[in-house]
Design a protein around this nucleic acid. Structure first.
Length: 154
DNA sequence: CGGTTTTGACCTGCGC
DNA sequence: GCGCAGGTCAAAACCG
């Protein structure tokens, strides 16, 4: 396994909810990760669902790859597919098939730069997984560490 | 047989 | 309201 190095520091976003960062993975490909809170309307919806206790997380991965589905070690069940406007490629919707796990993800290819795959994760897994891909784990860990220090600075 | 994919219908938020 | 765009459901097909 290659070493994952942190390439860029993000510019503090205008939105207080979002932060983003780039990782270089295995020499060739770069992963752009973005973490954002939900928009106000979505927050409202969430809070009415579970009493407003839980914070929802969203991670957006942008990878440059020929393969649409990057194996992150989790088991996903596809539950939908849609054509999005201004995009010739369709977007796929997946849900984590672990029982009781509510994590969702969307996979979508850029219309302009079709080499880029955008993977959006909604929520966090509250369970372990045997087959966790090391690179994915490492990226998320680095990203969380980064976010912690970022939050401390403010 | 049990889980997954497919696919059109259904639901919902939002802008006009 | 209405219609569009995006997100989800669910029944049938599919597959090991």
């Amino acid at each position: 396994m290659e070493k994952h190095e942190l390439v860029l520091f993000p510019t503090p976003s205008a939105s207080s909810y979002a932060s983003e960062i780039d990782f270089k993975v295995a020499q060739s490909s770069k992963v752009h990760v973005k973490r954002e809170g939900f928009l106000r309307t979505q927050k409202k919806k969430i809070s009415s669902q579970n009493g407003g206790k839980k914070v929802q997380h969203r991670y957006v991965f942008e990878t440059r790859s020929e393969i649409d589905i990057l194996d992150d070690g989790y088991k996903w069940r596809k539950y939908g597919e849609k054509n999005v406007k201004n995009n010739k490629f369709s977007r796929s919707y997946y849900r984590c098939s672990y029982q009781g796990c509510n994590v969702k993800k969307q996979i979508q290819r850029h219309s302009k730069d079709e080499q880029v795959v955008v993977t959006t994760y909604d929520g966090m897994h509250m369970h372990m997984v045997e087959n966790l891909t090391e690179s994915f784990d490492q990226i998320l860990r680095n990203f969380n560490i980064y976010n912690q220090s970022y939050n401390l600075q403010r």
